[in-house]
Amino acid sequence: MTRLLIVTAVEAEAAAVRTGVLASGVDPATVDVIPVGVGPAAAAAGTARLLALAEAGGAAYRAVISAGIAGGFPGRAEVGATVLGARTIAADLGAESPEGFLPVDRLGFGSNLLEADPALLKTLTTALPHAIVGDILTLSTVTGTAGTAAALLTRHPDAVAEAMEGYGVACAAQAAGVPCGELRTVSNPIGPRDRAAWRLREAFSALTEATAAACG
């Protein structure tokens, strides 16, 4: 029996995903949905542990999906939209300089970008034809000003959303040789921080529906 691992940051996201798994009609024993913590470090550590335990137990996962809610760039991914990551980018991994932000690639210390597994991404886009496909940024500090949002889009013109875990999950999956993808639903617009504009209920509902379609 092959299993799929879906990791989220928090239990509220995991609950929405589990509801979608049950609605999909697949055997729930073939899909593990586990929250691993907030931020790229917790996501990487938690996902790596789960993948290693599964492999050691002789039941390695066939793929891992980083799922949850996200902020969407206005005009690209509106509140309630479903987004799929063609690439996951650690957008704040690098250094400041007088000329501006230097990504870790420019520093010669590796890469801040990982591409989604092509076969997994094709499966997800087929199941979710209305999903918005683009780069999903991973940030340890999410955006709270219009200036930062504009700067991110200048550096990452294909970005559609931002979250806090995707790159960490992708790093763990790459190290384990497991296909990885990122699926998120938009709860708020990226820019000036305004909790009154967040629509968590709508985003969780969309996450359930997207999971049901992806697993069905």
Rank of each mutant, 00 (worst) to 15 (best):
A45C: 09
A45R: 12
A45M: 14
G46Y: 07
T47M: 07
A48T: 11
R49N: 07
R49F: 11
R49I: 13
R49P: 00
L50F: 03
L51W: 03
L51C: 02
L51M: 03
A52V: 09
A52G: 00
L53I: 09
L53G: 00
A56F: 12
A56R: 15
A56W: 11
G57M: 08
G58S: 02
G58D: 02
G58N: 03
G58L: 04
A59K: 13
R62I: 00
R62Q: 10
R62W: 00
R62P: 00
R62D: 06
A63G: 02
A63W: 03
A63F: 02
V64P: 02
I65D: 00
I65H: 00
I65M: 01
I65K: 02
S66P: 01
S66M: 06
S66Q: 04
A67T: 06
A67I: 03
G68T: 05
G68F: 07
I69S: 08
I69Q: 00
I69Y: 03
G71W: 08
G71S: 04
G72T: 02
G72N: 01
F73N: 01
P74H: 06
G75P: 01
G75T: 05
R76V: 06
R76M: 04
R76T: 07
E78L: 08
E78Q: 12
V79C: 04
G80E: 05
G80H: 07
A81D: 13
A81C: 10
T82A: 02
T82F: 01
T82D: 01
V83P: 00
V83T: 06
G85A: 15
T88Y: 00
I89L: 01
I89T: 08
A90Q: 08
D92G: 09
D92R: 12
D92S: 10
L93C: 07
L93T: 08
G94E: 10
G94F: 08
A95V: 05
A95T: 10
A95N: 08
E96R: 14
E96Q: 15
E96W: 14
S97N: 09
S97G: 14
P98E: 11
E99D: 15
G100Q: 12
G100K: 11
G100M: 13
G100T: 11
F101S: 05
L102H: 11
L102N: 08
P103W: 12
V104Y: 12
V104M: 09
D105E: 15
D105P: 07
L107C: 10
L107Y: 06
G108I: 12
F109M: 14
F109R: 15
F109L: 15
F109S: 11
G110R: 01
G110I: 06
S111N: 10
N112F: 05
L113N: 09
L113K: 12
L114Y: 08
E115S: 15
E115G: 14
E115W: 03
E115K: 14
A116N: 06
D117A: 10
D117W: 04
D117I: 07
P118R: 01
A119C: 05
A119H: 13
